[in-house]
Design a protein around this nucleic acid. Structure first.
Lengths: 146, 146
DNA sequence: TTGAAAGTTTAGCATAGGCTAAGTTATATG
DNA sequence: CATATAACTTAGCCTATGCTAAACTTTCAA
């Protein structure tokens, strides 16, 4: 198997990217939830299950289940039949997400895509952008546009 | 409930973005697999289970299970203990993925990020980029850099 | 040609993230 | 203040994606 000799080292490098993508995905949902909870609290003083479900486009029961995980991860606090609150850690994550989101969305707009596309694509891209890329986007924004 | 009156229409718009992200995610794995199978076939004439597992950084059994789904989706063909092949549909998806991937990676490089970061981030971003954004990236590449 | 190594598959488990249906609690209003 | 409605929770189901361990094929070399 002559072919196999060079496949081990390059494969290790390659697999790192996919591992990062998988890790990003599991962090993604938590990020979306806390960001949305933060928005709801800012907009209307409290975050309720139903509002989250509506905005995410999922069933109520799905939200309940996910909130349990977020509570276990100490990102939110919650009492039965009451509104949802963010822990300090949760706020930190929400702020971080908002910052990233804003940069990516503005960047896409500066690149020339429509408002609607910027909004939709940034939602997906946000969680896969490294600090380095985010910084590069920031620099681009400083030069061009806002 | 004055607050609730304006939440339905805006929520519908918002939820569309998250629905797109969820849809992207379920298509993502299939895309990564067929792209990798295409690469392996080009590089060494055939795609084997083990090579895919190594490059993705997952266990062999995981690959086997996923390949079953890809076979059900008619993206690949496969006989027990033999190499894996792409269907016409599979090749189409692989080519499409490669094209997208190349543009996103080149774009990140042109934006000024390092080779390594471009490689890693493009892997995650690739699946969340709309046609419109891809075109904007292409235009940017035509102006600046390659 | 046979047996060990390499590769592939199966079985069985876990978690995440969806869903519907049915039950429980809060609240707003008649 | 009683009750209908809205909000929340629980139970139970499903699929996708990961894992390990064990069983089965292929292949290569002695």
């Amino acid at each position: 198997m002559a072919l196999a000799t060079k496949k081990i080292p390059s494969a290790k490098l390659r697999s790192a990217a996919f591992k990062r993508v998988r890790a990003d995905h599991s962090a993604e949902l938590a990020g979306d939830y806390v960001e949305m909870i933060a928005d709801l609290i800012d907009e209307r003083g409290e975050a309720r299950c139903t509002d989250i479900a509506m905005r995410l486009g999922v069933a109520n029961a799905t939200v309940v289940k996910t909130l349990k995980r977020l509570q276990a991860a100490e990102l939110i606090t919650q009492e039965p039949y009451r509104a949802i609150f963010l822990t300090v850690e949760g706020w930190k994550m929400a702020e971080d997400g908002r910052r990233k989101h804003a940069i990516v969305e503005k960047f896409l707009l500066a690149l020339g895509v429509s408002q609607e596309t910027a909004r939709i694509d940034s939602e997906g891209i946000e969680h896969h952008v490294s600090t380095e890329t985010l910084r590069a986007m920031g620099k681009f924004l400083a030069r061009n546009g806002s």
